[in-house]
Design a binder for these strands. Structure first.
Length: 475
DNA sequence: CTATGGCACGGATT
DNA sequence: AATCCGTGCCATAG
């Protein structure tokens, strides 16, 4: 197997000391980006550490480990659909803005009070703005509500800063096109339109989708497809396509799906959201091929203890010998622990991707219920090991979506998607109680109250506010 | 009277 | 030990 060649045999990786154990655990909690930062500071402080010369794959430009061929581009020998191709990539090219957000606007006392979203957005757009404009942007961003929508009006902001409305709107436009797209819109409708516009630059979008949002959002949210079709002058089938496209690709509340609140960052280490720790793709884009799982582990295989430093230890000046010794120990430990971390991630992801292949390929409905405890038992590690590895990490799926790893352990997702399906296919609005009995028939045992909760989680209106669907079309 | 949402409790999960 | 989640009870709206 690939990772056996890449990593040292597991036996040499067993934690030998409590220090080893402690550091392994703390490294496991870090995301790839954080690990990258940690290693960089360590590199600059510890003379015993050095970087091996980097070799990159000529085809995909990934950094390679040792003399191994690129695990992604060289076709593996055995192609079993079941068995995912897993490899560790030492890449360290993240989309991180190094600019400290605190420095950016501390002078103005405009530090965003709300946790992450405002700073995150500001950091993206700051390079494009003049200092003056940054103050406006900061002001706008501090007035976001928890859904990522604007809580004030551009006009108000313009008055407050004595600038033209046009100027504020121009900046707002820049904000809206930052990640998460649509943030800073004044309504869900506007957010959707911005997202659609941006999407249209790279993807084909259904015709009239923008019209549907502009004039038919209310109808859309109540699933009144026939009505909407009449309004737009197209068949309800087309409307369904549009509705499907919108719910798959757009998000009326930019701040909500934004799972930033899951990973609370601190002032010293602002979290970065758009860098996945695991990238799952399809071999040659073929849905019947094995999954390719790339685990991002910065500097893995490139970081080593400087052998010259080790030799020089014998001739260390007497006053430095203690210092050097500890540097050497720290370096040794770090290198080992990073390998241990990668090893754990590989085992973890192999199990998850094998088990949840259907979910990865086809979406929420196919998520199998699974708990961290069960996984821990199978891998023969402590539960907390899994918890640490999973929390605050992100995976990118073949469809491009970036999800928190914890989604693989969402107990209710499966039932939620079944409920969504039932409501999507209902002939007349079903009450929560009726949905319960339908679910019971399919073998799901949930209480009426729970259905109600899931329904509202999915943003589906109660039955008396939903509309009668058109009868199914004969083909 | 029925359907739904708020509050809160207990058990499972982390 | 802390947190999350499903559920029951009750008030309220339709």
């Amino acid at each position: 197997m690939l990772q056996v060649q890449i990593l040292r045999p597991a036996t040499t990786l067993r934690p030998l000391t409590t220090a080893h154990l402690a550091q392994t655990m703390s490294l496991l909690e870090l995301t790839a980006v954080e690990l990258n930062q940690k290693i960089e500071t360590e590199l600059s402080q510890n003379p015993a550490l050095e970087l091996r010369e980097e070799r990159r794959c000529p085809t995909c430009h990934r950094p390679l480990i040792g003399s191994q061929p690129c695990p992604r581009c060289s076709t593996p020998k055995s192609l079993s659909m079941e068995e995912p191709i897993i490899f560790v990539s030492p890449r360290q090219d993240f989309y991180v803005s190094r600019r400290s957000s605190a420095e950016e606007f501390s002078g103005e006392n405009l530090t965003p009070a709300k946790e992450e979203l405002p700073t995150f957005v500001l950091r993206q757009i700051a390079p494009d703005l003049d200092p003056d404009d940054r103050r406006l942007a900061a002001h706008l961003l501090t007035n976001l509500d928890e859904d990522g929508l604007l809580d004030t009006t551009p006009l108000e902001v313009a008055r407050y800063h004595h600038v033209s409305l046009g100027k504020v709107e121009k900046i707002l436009n820049i904000i809206q096109r930052a990640d998460p797209v649509g943030v800073g819109s004044s309504s869900p409708r506007e957010a959707l339109l911005v997202q659609l516009e941006l999407l249209a630059e790279n993807f084909p979008v259904p015709p009239l989708a923008d019209e549907a949002i502009k004039s038919g959002l209310e109808l859309l949210s109540r699933h009144q497809y026939t009505e909407l079709g009449r309004l737009l002058g197209i068949s309800s089938r087309k409307v369904r396509e549009i509705a499907r496209f919108i719910s798959d690709n757009l998000n009326p509340y930019p701040g909500r799906a934004y799972w930033g609140d899951i990973r609370q960052g601190t002032a010293e280490s602002p979290r970065v959201y758009n860098n996945p720790d695991v990238i799952i793709s399809l071999l040659q884009g073929n849905a019947n091929a094995p999954l390719v799982v790339e685990i991002v582990s910065p500097f893995l295989g490139l970081l080593q203890v400087n052998p010259l430093f080790r030799q020089a230890l014998g001739q260390a000046p007497a006053d430095k010998v203690e210092q050097w010794k500890s540097d050497l120990e720290r370096a040794d430990l770090l290198v080992k622990c990073i390998q241990q971390r990668a090893n754990t991630m590989v085992r973890l992801m192999r199990r998850i991707t094998k088990l949840q292949r259907e979910f990865i390929l086809h979406g929420d409905c196919y998520l199998r219920p699974y708990t961290r405890a069960k996984l821990a038992e199978e891998l023969d590690v402590h539960e907390s090991t899994i918890s640490r590895a999973v929390s605050s990490k992100a995976a990118q799926l073949p469809n491009g979506h970036i999800i928190p790893l914890s989604k693989f352990f969402d107990r209710s997702l499966h039932i939620r998607s079944v409920i969504k399906e039932i409501i999507d296919n209902e002939k007349k609005p079903l009450s929560d109680n009726e949905i319960v009995s339908l679910l019971n028939e399919q073998g799901f045992h949930v209480a009426r109250r729970t259905v109600a909760k899931y329904r509202s989680m999915e943003g589906i209106l109660p039955s008396h506010l939903r509309q009668v669907k058109e009868s199914p079309k004969p083909a």
